[in-house]
Amino acid sequence: MLEITLFYVAATIALVATVMAMTRTNAIHALIYLIVSLLAVAVIFFLIGAPFAAALEIVIYAGAIMVLFVFVIMMLNLGERGDQQERQWLQPKIWIGPALLSMLLFVELLYVISALEGPVSATAVSAKEVGLSLFGPYVLAVEIASMLLLAGLVGSFHLGRRYLDRGDLEKEGE
């Protein structure tokens, strides 16, 4: 019973935080709500028996990726000007299309959930099982992801290198 209450509290927080994240005009406020939403999702993971996924959600999403988002916003440092632009973009009529489409998805989701029987399996998944399944049935996905990351690494290395050697490039151009 306690677990169900905790689940609904966490789920409500996640939903409210996500809606707030979408509707804020200040990018930093939106990001803080998004972080709260991620933390709530981590709590849900923990409750449904995936503590490893919960920990990774906090370490990677809330702790690293969102920090990089904040980092980019700090670099741009738009301030009040960004807020105004955002307010212009977030006109009520813009919301109609996405709202309709997500309404359809929501109905579909309700239909699927009503067809399910009973709660999702509540056995805890340990870190070892996650590791074994990553390098067992899902090894192809891991390899593809690592290739994608390598491409990103090479790309950023290339950009950084050109910036450092610009003096040499200019000399070659002369």
Binding site: I28, I32, I35, P51, F52, A54, A55, L56, I58, V59, A62, G63, A64, V67, V70, F71, I73, M74, S126, A127
Partner: peptide, 25 residues
């Protein structure tokens, strides 16, 4: 908990926000 170490890492990574948001705000 069986994820104690990861919990510690998660908490230290959340502490970054304090410095970040303090600097930005």
């Amino acid at each position: 908990v069986n994820i104690g170490l990861l919990f510690f890492l998660g908490m230290t990574s959340l502490a970054v926000y304090s410095v970040l948001l303090g600097g930005l705000a």
